[in-house]
Design a protein around this nucleic acid. Structure first.
Lengths: 325, 325
DNA sequence: CTGTTAGCGCTTTCAC
DNA sequence: GTGAAAGCGCTAACAG
């Protein structure tokens, strides 16, 4: 079913149908007739033809990666909300663990005449993406900063610093930090450095600090902490780079110290404020981020760029809340 | 940058460029020249023009809803994997809590000449969707069954039945079931009915069963179970419709019985096998679903429909695994 | 193998 | 207010 067929059925020109759809000059009478014809035929206009003709889609592409799974729903929800209110559509693409697919995904978005792209990813961006990051449309990144591009991210380092400060440690406390493996700056280096800096400020004896690295799953955390505890168990705190790892740590500790959580058992801190962890193991110190706000801000910046492409690039760092301490 | 401009630069016809892109007859020499011209100009073909012309996009639309947040990443990952291997693209749309936006989302997908639509949603589908469910393209549903449509869903009822059987209850046991609020068939009615049927089979005294209803958050579960326990506390099991509610239940129980989990404290069962819950509160009996497989199966069925639209509609019910019991 | 050409469904002057 | 007509970028005959 096309424009023209509807026009014929309503006894008007295809231009009139177009005007009906887009709110141009049109007599009430024809408006009625067209409405009836559309209703009758179930006509659905072709976005492709419209975009081809007008050269704009009023749609922003959003790329999600598995690495940011836990933030996914919140961020998308915020993005969607803002774009919806601003009369932009959203087209989401998902990239699994294989970051190589990123450029392919980016390309297919670009082929669709999308107005802008928001890449939501904490994962390191492969070199072959450089081309696409400087595309003909504004590209922005959520979760990390990329030179010359707009970005929105959380202050992981600052959060980790404040978290370390909030644990109530003394210079004599013994602390283990379980780092997140892989080259994820925000989960890894940023949090670790911030945390260690926080401990240093307290004046914590460097020799009382142990650092280990774990994968991203509960099981990874469990194994890493089990092994650590088998060598040394007199920690005051085992601080983990993510709440998922923290869950594994808690399991390991409980296994070693008994379910009654003996007074000598290390306490645990996490990162991310998972509600289930907080309810079942809490209150434990952790960091809470507002993912939805993150999405809203990103969309807001994107819309600004879209309206005025000369606006200089913005790099926004969002705050955090220390909870359970 | 267009087809024609690239052609001119390479000294060939636009048809040749098209052939280059789509793998038609072309001399090696022209192939080289075109490649060079594309490289030089950074030309990106217009998907809209191609789709307009060919009337097919080789792309399937996927609609995600907030209600299915916890399954989202897994399902999408499975869908994406299968379509990728089958040379189909995927275009994802997200619908928040306001299910009214569903028809708008569906429509915008339809306008894009998408080849099929997979609606991933356990939420009740509004009546105004009927029109769209019988669209010109195959539509299928993941998470519930809709008459006449292909669907993939989990056997929630059977899982709940088996879970109830696996708790190790006797006819004299006292059991509370915390139902999930709202009109979500799979989280609500299906699980509740299956669970109660399972208890009945054991011969559990009906008067020893209490049913309460909670919202979907940890806090909802906490409040509901706290209130329940303040009236009656001698349960052997508090079984919850979701792991999230179970987390709240555990918090409420711990608060009432002390963190040492006295022998008289009720045990808890959940639904969904959240890894964090299992690590921190487990092992507790719960049900595990393979969301990724669910996505793969859905995509598989969709591809079948796409290849042969006369295939009769398939309704697949996936199994489950009882864990922690 | 290759170029010419028509036209996908839509919007947008332009002239009435 | 309204219709005729051109053309967005691409592909698919078709003729060479």
């Amino acid at each position: 079913m096309t424009n023209g067929e509807v026009a014929e059925l309503a006894g008007v020109s295809s231009a009139a149908v177009s005007r009906y759809l887009n709110g141009g000059y049109l007599s009430e009478e024809k408006r009625q007739r067209i409405a009836a014809a559309i209703e009758e035929t179930g006509y659905v206009p072709s976005a492709n033809a419209r975009i081809l003709r007008t050269k704009k889609s009023d749609t922003v592409g959003v790329i999600l990666t598995r690495a940011d799974e836990s933030a996914m729903s919140g961020v998308v929800s915020g993005i969607e909300k803002y774009f919806f209110a601003s009369d932009y559509g959203t087209s989401i693409a998902y990239v699994g663990d294989d970051v190589k697919e990123l450029s392919k995904t980016m390309r297919s978005l670009l082929e669709r005449q999308i107005d802008g792209i928001i890449l939501v990813s904490s994962a390191p961006i492969p070199g072959d993406m450089d081309l696409y990051l400087r595309a003909r449309v504004p590209v922005m990144v959520v979760g990390q900063h990329v030179r010359d591009l707009c970005s929105v991210r959380f202050d992981n380092s600052g959060a980790a610093y404040d978290l370390a400060s909030a644990l109530g440690c003394t210079p004599e406390s013994r602390v283990a930090y379980i780092d997140a493996a892989g080259r994820y700056r925000s989960f890894g280096a940023d949090r670790r450095k911030g945390f260690l800096a926080g401990l240093e400020r307290i004046g914590l004896n460097q020799e009382h600090i142990s650092v280990r690295t774990a994968g991203f799953s509960v099981d990874d955390g469990y194994r890493t902490v089990s092994e650590l505890l088998s060598k040394q168990a007199d920690f005051d705190f085992i601080s983990c780079a993510t709440d998922t790892i923290a869950a594994g740590a808690i399991k390991a500790i409980r296994e070693r110290f008994g379910s009654s959580f003996a007074a000598r058992a290390p306490r645990v801190s996490g990162f991310g404020n998972d509600p289930i962890l907080q309810a079942t193991a809490g209150p434990i110190p952790t960091v809470s981020f507002d993912y939805e706000e993150c999405g809203v801000k990103a969309a807001e910046i994107m819309v600004d760029q879209l309206k005025d492409r000369t606006v200089s690039s913005v790099s926004l760092v969002l705050g955090y809340r220390i909870v359970g301490a």
